[in-house]
Design a protein around this nucleic acid. Structure first.
Lengths: 154, 154
DNA sequence: CCGAAATACTCAGTGCCCTGATCAATTCGT
DNA sequence: ACGAATTGATCAGGGCACTGAGTATTTCGG
């Protein structure tokens, strides 16, 4: 008894939303390449030669996860990884030809999937949907990366 | 080149939202009990004696994942698991005293966390936030579990 | 009553996601 | 120039999430 209603818990809703997206992605986009993997391909299509940490920052993956994702993309031959001659700590990443082809192909399918996924909402609602989620996510991230830690915990 | 803008991709947004929630949960609710684990405790507080599969259905976890979560809660002594005398396939689950205490304690903290998490939105916006996410998630789940598969793939 | 189908659960395998610890390379301060 | 701090990457470890295959139990059809 005294149980709460999870439909008013944003965390629960976020998890369900992501699961729903995962399933639709598998059905409509790819069973091989996952959504985070596509995000990495997309980041490298935009900015070839990024290092691992920066790619992770672009797509919102931490250092460990981005390492695993890159390693899988490397095994599949979609991403190339060479040590930065100027800074021996870094690996510079870029798409292979196959990686670029895959990125182009999935870009089309992803657009179609997004349409289906968001079909229950009107165009106006979709805009609100993006705005609200982004504001909540940005604010929560801001709590962790205080740009100006003035009066923190004051 | 030809990279897309991920901020208009609901899957990417959903992932970022969940990550943000995960971090805040860790900071404000518990480092031991996760949000899915709390969802299970909550389901059992509401309906003691559920079997594993049904709990999974209530909280949105598949058969494998719910088994792992229950096993962890069992190891922590928060959940009891006994074979159903009426149906030897089922395990009946209920909270231990410790499980009930934990559920009560986390319910309070979770409410506080949700307030912080949703603080960037007005009350009206929060209602819209819940509604939009739920509609999208429900619709996507509906694509998988067609209640009436009439004219499916027609 | 007995074999087939359905159901609850488990197990193996893959992938995402985080933290803390460790290592190597670079940069900074003196 | 040299030790200390910083930075990029890796590794170990824990947890979530899905699929496909396998086991045990119950239920259904004839």
């Amino acid at each position: 008894m005294a149980a709460v209603d999870l439909t008013t818990h944003p965390g629960h809703l976020a998890r369900r939303l992501q699961q729903a997206h995962y399933l639709l992605w598998n059905a409509m986009v790819s069973e091989e390449i996952t959504s985070p993997q596509f995000a990495v391909l997309n980041a490298l299509a935009d900015e070839p030669g990024l290092d691992q940490r920066t790619v992770g920052e672009r797509v919102g993956l931490d250092r460990s996860t981005i390492a695993e994702v890159i390693s899988r993309l490397g095994r599949r031959g979609l991403v190339d990884k060479v040590r930065d001659p100027r800074d021996g700590r870094r690996f510079l990443l870029r798409l292979t030809d196959d990686g670029e082809r895959t990125h182009r192909k999935l870009t089309v399918r992803t657009a179609r999937m997004n349409q289906v996924f968001l079909a229950p909402l009107s165009a106006a609602e979709q805009a609100v949907f993006f705005d609200l989620i982004q504001r909540v996510a940005d604010a929560a991230e801001g709590l962790r990366n205080p740009a100006e830690p003035v009066l923190a915990q004051g």
